[in-house]
């Protein structure tokens, strides 16, 4: 029982990284129709930025959690304005190739500048250690990650359902032609939405910095799992991305506990089952024409 509690926390913590990053991926896919292959690299940049800011100006994790996503927002908007937007009218494959190329470029630049062994990161003492729950020591940092992820997901959900901006973005995501026909300037929201998605990947990166190896390659495998997450949750579905993220995290943790050799395979088995049973994903909408 104690072990199950531990595995659940570990799974939810791993799922938090997936949920945050997948949320960004889903928003970008929803509004732009772009499968952003560079999302793993943006996650990596978030972690590297946090480590570099700590090393050079002594920026704490608390501040980095706000500053780095803002930097990534600006960076994402620049990427959209300078690169992505020119390929939007063409087949989505072009943007997939562009973002894939961007990944290679960013990973190599980081390797060149910061080497391949990774960067050190020290977290605030408050977040170290464990608290005892039902006789089990649960790492405070993992609980913190889960808390932040849930808060941000809740915030994004409120933003999407309770504000005018969210309504426009949702309309643009779900029925872009109809939204356009009703006089909503969908194009205006493309750049900030792309930046917002990138900022979420960056935030996941900052959260990962104290807990995982900060290397140029850290996003390379992350992005593969992330694609599985959005496929399971339903491409373009915001709730699906979050639910898919936590679900995949749990499958990973319990897989590691009870079938260690198959832990990663299980994720893709889950994906295959979901695609067979519900091709649009758990929370995706079936389209009559699809």
């Amino acid at each position: 029982m104690n072990a199950v509690l531990q595995y659940t926390v570990q799974g939810l913590a791993a799922g938090s990284f997936y949920a945050l990053a997948a949320l960004g991926l889903a928003v970008i896919f929803g509004v732009l129709g772009v499968v952003n292959f560079a999302h793993g690299a943006f996650y990596m940049l978030g972690a590297v930025a946090a480590a570099v800011l700590l090393d050079t100006v002594g920026m704490s994790l608390w501040l980095a959690l706000i500053v780095v996503p803002l930097l990534m927002l600006v960076f994402g908007m620049l990427v959209e304005r300078l690169l992505v937007q020119w390929l939007l009218p063409l087949d989505p494959l072009y943007n997939l190739l562009l973002t894939f190329g961007l990944t290679l470029l960013l990973v190599d630049l980081v390797k060149r500048r910061y080497g391949v062994s990774g960067l050190p990161y020290e977290r605030p003492d408050v977040l170290s250690g464990r608290i005892q729950v039902a006789g089990v020591g649960l790492p405070i940092y993992q609980l913190f990650v889960i808390g932040v992820a849930l808060l941000v997901c809740l915030g994004v959900w409120l933003l999407m359902t309770r504000t005018r901006v969210g309504m426009i973005v949702r309309a643009a995501t779900e029925r872009p032609e109809l939204a356009g026909a009703l006089g909503i300037n969908v194009g205006r929201w493309v750049t900030p939405v792309f930046g917002f998605g990138v900022a979420l990947a960056g935030l996941a990166g900052v959260l990962a910095a104290p807990f995982r190896a900060i290397t140029a390659e850290m996003g390379s495998d992350f992005i593969i799992i992330l694609f599985a997450v959005v496929v399971i949750g339903g491409l373009g579905s915001i709730v699906g991305a979050v639910a898919g993220g936590f679900l995949v995290g749990l499958v990973e943790a319990f897989g590691q506990a009870y079938a260690p050799t198959f832990a990663q395979v299980l994720i893709f088995v889950l994906m295959a089952v979901v695609v067979l049973a519900r091709p649009a994903g758990l929370f995706g909408r079936e389209e009559a024409t699809a």
Binding site: Y7, A213, P260
Partner: peptide
């Protein structure tokens, strides 16, 4: 002995298991 996938970024559960 516990085999893990390679590469991997999530070892928390493997470690808990080894420690148990």
């Amino acid at each position: 002995t516990i085999a893990t996938p390679f590469p991997n970024d999530n070892f928390a559960t493997y470690i808990t298991k080894a420690g148990a």
